[in-house]
Simulated scan of single mutants.
Amino acid sequence: MAPRTRAQLAEKMAARDVPEDVVVEVLDRFEEVGLVDDRAFADGFVRSRSAGRGRRALVQELRRKGVDDETAEQALEVVDHDSQTDAARDLVRRKLRSTAGLERAVRERRLFGMLARRGFPTDVVLRVVREELDDEA
């Protein structure tokens, strides 16, 4: 079984009609013995997913999984501007091959959209796409 957050486990137990007081007691015990650790979950999640997503997308995914904002921010300390730029550059280089025969404006739109959907900051998106297209030409 993949690691889960406290919120995800609580949601699953509630879906199975487990009484709320039992859910709280079980999850408290799980945290006490180290079976549930939202901080460790967030750290692992960020490490495994940061190569293909920007900081904004990672924050949203962690929130959906029930990780509180403070824990998410602590986990995201490893995702700095340079690492986001490198990840965006790798994605753009891979996508450039599949858009080789298209006009530059079309390629820019597609690359901008891809990176924006993945949560990369606008300044990184604009700079990386333009630099990579210029380098290719």
Rank of each mutant, 00 (worst) to 15 (best):
K65R: 15
K65N: 15
K65C: 11
K65T: 12
G66D: 12
D68K: 10
D69G: 15
D69I: 15
D69N: 13
D69A: 15
E70C: 04
E70W: 03
E70S: 14
T71I: 03
T71V: 06
T71Q: 01
A72I: 12
A72Y: 01
A72R: 13
A72G: 13
A72L: 08
A72D: 12
A72F: 02
E73N: 13
E73S: 15
E73I: 11
E73L: 13
E73Y: 06
E73V: 14
Q74N: 13
Q74H: 12
Q74W: 11
Q74M: 10
A75Y: 01
A75H: 02
E77F: 02
E77M: 12
E77N: 05
E77L: 15
E77H: 09
V78K: 14
V78T: 15
V78N: 02
V79K: 09
V79L: 08
V79D: 00
V79S: 02
V79T: 05
D80R: 07
D80P: 03
D80N: 10
D80A: 07
H81Q: 12
H81V: 12
D82W: 07
D82Y: 07
S83I: 09
S83C: 01
S83N: 08
S83E: 10
S83M: 11
Q84T: 00
Q84M: 11
Q84D: 01
T85E: 14
T85F: 15
T85P: 03
T85W: 13
T85M: 15
T85Q: 13
D86F: 03
D86T: 13
D86C: 10
D86H: 10
D86I: 12
D86Q: 04
D86G: 11
A87W: 05
A87E: 07
A87Y: 03
A88E: 01
A88D: 02
A88W: 06
R89W: 01
R89L: 03
R89V: 03
R89H: 01
R89C: 06
D90Y: 00
D90F: 00
L91I: 06
L91E: 04
L91M: 10
L91H: 00
L91N: 02
V92W: 13
R93D: 11
R93N: 04
R93S: 11
R94Y: 00
R94V: 14
R94D: 14
R94L: 09
R94E: 15
R94F: 07
R94W: 01
K95A: 14
L96C: 01
L96R: 07
L96N: 00
L96H: 08
L96D: 07
L96F: 13
R97W: 08
R97Y: 04
R97M: 05
R97F: 04
S98K: 07
S98V: 08
S98Q: 05
T99V: 10
T99N: 10
T99W: 04
A100Q: 02
A100I: 13
A100R: 13
G101L: 06
G101M: 04
G101V: 03
L102P: 02
L102H: 03
L102I: 04
E103F: 02
E103P: 10
E103R: 12
R104E: 08
A105D: 06
A105T: 06
A105Q: 07
V106H: 00
V106S: 03
R107E: 08
R107A: 09
E108H: 11
E108Y: 03
E108D: 04
E108F: 06
E108A: 06
E108S: 06
R109W: 04
R109V: 08
R109L: 11
R110V: 14
R110I: 14
L111F: 12
L111S: 01
L111I: 07
L111E: 05
